[in-house]
Amino acid sequence: MTDKFISIEGISKRYPGASGATTTVFENLWLSMARGEFCCVIGHSGCGKTTVLNILAGLDAPSEGVVIVDGQAISGTSLDRAVIFQSHALLPWRTVLGNVAYAVSSKWRKWDRAKVKAHAQTFIDLVGLTGSEHKRPSELSGGMKQRVGIARALSITPKMMLMDEPFSALDALTRGTLQDEVRRICLETGQTAFMITHDVDEAIYLADKIFLMTNGPGAVLAEVVENPLPRDRGRTDLHRHPLYYALRNHIIDFLVTRSKTFVAETPDHDPRSVPVIHIGKPGLTIASSGDEPRQAWIPGTNPGLSA
């Protein structure tokens, strides 16, 4: 908690519901991320993950609380925070190059056409779309479209990337390649990333920290799970790591049961100091004293192995 590059401080989101009642999506949410960190949020639908991301992007405003990025409270959108949309959100009347160039020329208004084009081309090459610059989105496959979305987000050299389930609409093979690409790019550029996902393995592969959110309405950030896997992990041998299943089971257990019961079982949950879970190192777990031991992982007794 030394370097708080991004700090979400006590944000809430409420909507006026039917007949004057208000629906609280989440309340008093605190969360922080260090520079260069890759964080994933996991939680069931309706827990307000997308709302948190939209607030971080500046597309939505919290009902209460502030978001501080790089020492400054944010208000509205910024070219420092790029968003990769779930549905890629490419402009269909522009070509691949046109879509990326639109972002580039939005950031550097005074650049001439050639400079914008050259800069956009660099990022098209980076995501492996060299040769498809002049195709329109309708001529691209789902994976290629999302690559354009990634190139567009990266081209404005943001301070952080926000991704809302960017790969959920893709087939498993394409998703895997794109995960590799995103991981490579983020590590190379030291990008800070905030990603929403439903895919536990995706979170384990990509994230340094995994935020677990309970079910909404009235969702809370229950735990921050530190990823114990080494930073130079590979997607193919991920599951061979001794702590992989412990981590995976912990997340699955949370999603299956504890996401529903967490709020009732943990009345003294302090949203300002959310427990940080270190898988496999029970001694280091910062958890409230009344917590049941949840690191009791014995090899071979994992329900997750049967899958």
Binding site: G58, T77, S78, L79, V83, A89, A103, S106
Partner: peptide, 14 residues
Amino acid sequence: VRKEWINVARTLEV
């Protein structure tokens, strides 16, 4: 107009 296209423009501070 699709909200996400507007959001693209908004995130790019257009």
